[in-house]
Design a protein around this nucleic acid. Sequence first.
DNA 1: GCATACATACCGCGCGGTCGGTATGTGTCA
DNA 2: TGACACATACCGACCGCGCGGTATGTATGC
Lengths: 188, 188
Amino acid sequence: MNAMPKRRKQPDRVRRSLLDCAARLAAEHGPGGVTVQAVAAAAGVTKGGLFHHFPSKEALLESLFSDLIARLNREIDGLMQTDPLAHGRFTRAYIRAVFADRIQPEGSLWAPLSVAMIADPALRRLWADWLQARLTRHADTDAAPRLEMARLAADGLWLSDLMEVDGKVPPAKQGLLEMLVDATKTER
Amino acid sequence: MNAMPKRRKQPDRVRRSLLDCAARLAAEHGPGGVTVQAVAAAAGVTKGGLFHHFPSKEALLESLFSDLIARLNREIDGLMQTDPLAHGRFTRAYIRAVFADRIQPEGSLWAPLSVAMIADPALRRLWADWLQARLTRHADTDAAPRLEMARLAADGLWLSDLMEVDGKVPPAKQGLLEMLVDATKTER
DNA sequence: GCATACATACCGCGCGGTCGGTATGTGTCA
DNA sequence: TGACACATACCGACCGCGCGGTATGTATGC
């Protein structure tokens, strides 16, 4: 009957909760809603507690961001394993992974964080380095200009989602997505 | 020898200067650098003076934004007039106009403001309405999915510019741009 | 003289961050 | 097995700062 664990203090749980709540707050109230006070309160912790786990707000954001990148990496790797065609394999996985996030319940995790990313040079660097690393890693299959164009279009489509006022999500985009994926399958 | 005009107070000049300085500050120090204090000081005016011209900071930003939209409109219209091909005429002008901004001296005017745009629902709405208006206006020439894809890719390319760390501007993008424009010329 | 066009001084607020104290764990040794 | 020592986890109150915004004074131009 008692689900209460013996250990009343579980710091790593709290740490996780802080990261999750930060993401949730960003998704619900935009990047401006991510204040240390709000994050701490949402995680059932005071500000002092938060600063015990993270030396600064920036550190929290970076941690959250690299968390999301790791998640994206896993998803992309999973998608790539089920793709029989070599040419453009990473690009297709990238496109699909980016839009798998859109469909997610309670809004995109990336959306508001990306806004913060654009503003914060440190996060920008994290993203740039990640993309650069994966691109050089798949240079032999995904270096074609046409593939880069497809990725750019996916980014644009994703950006247009950010722009949507409120929850207006025109479903016509799905066709465009498939169009993009198809474009990666033909060499030249 | 005296270039000083008779009228020592020229309110519309000050107003313009405020808008220009706001844009300059955004370009130089990012969206976070656009504070009323900084803008007023840069324009050689105190905060009170700024609030005499604009009822709020948001009003200033909206005014600046619609200013830029007007400029973009003019540029697009100019480009469209010299384009003999009907199909995709707006799309080509859109792409070229977006990237004409990149080349500009002292950094893009749009770049940092767009970051603010993504964050601010009011500005987002302005942009969405503008794009919607122009798209319905050129529905007979620019409604094809392929054209939309080209515009999205342009947006993605532009976004990737925002992401660049510092001034790292890989010149390979120019080829992609031409590739995009070419893609708009073939129907289906 | 009277509206306009500013300057000056000030306010309240919420932010990120700090600090001392206090519970709560955990290893140690008799 | 307990008592002790120390480390960890967290609370709660506080701080300085810079922000957007306001109220009032004052010089300029028609």
